[in-house]
């Protein structure tokens, strides 16, 4: 656990600690503004849609679809980066994993999986639903 805390310290700041702690427990939390009712991404304490500071973290459904993607062929191990539009309506950058790169398409339904980074912090990624 101590190692994991060190890993989290490398990625979290005081504003985003709550997100990464939830991620360490295997949950994707999405910030939602109680004033305008909208989700946003990436997580902030101040709503980018209306400026309100009344943000609550909600458990994500963990589903969405690929908005766009690109396969980095020049990397030592090629990988698929993507924007996934979540069912809640907000769009996050992520990786599409555990599927054939040739199967990935815009509009493809995806579901949440967690993977640890090489440094040991948990990352929300997606795979074909």
């Amino acid at each position: 656990m101590a190692v994991k805390n060190e890993a989290l310290a490398r990625i979290a700041n005081p504003e985003t600690k709550v997100f990464w702690e939830a991620a360490a427990r295997g949950g994707l939390r999405l910030p939602k503004c109680t004033s305008c009712g909208r989700f946003h991404w990436y997580p902030r304490r101040i709503c980018p849609h209306c400026g309100s500071t009344t943000i609550e973290m909600h458990a994500a459904k963990g589903t969405g679809e690929v908005y766009s993607y690109s396969i980095m062929r020049r990397a030592k191990v090629p990988y698929a980066i993507a924007y996934v539009r979540l069912t809640e309506g907000t769009t996050m950058m992520t990786n599409v994993v555990d599927c054939d790169f040739d199967d990935i398409q815009i509009g493809m339904p995806v579901k949440l999986v967690f993977r640890d980074s090489p440094e040991g912090y948990p990352l929300p990624m997606f795979t074909k639903a």
Binding site: Y69, S70, I106
Partner: peptide, 27 residues
């Protein structure tokens, strides 16, 4: 860099310039 608000939610997934513009082209 945890102080830059976006990078913790992007850098771990490997955004470089080529694949970011690749996503623009793909869309």
């Amino acid at each position: 860099n945890p102080n830059q608000p976006d990078t913790a939610f992007e850098s771990p997934f490997g955004p470089a310039l080529a694949n970011m513009y690749g996503m623009v082209a793909r869309r």
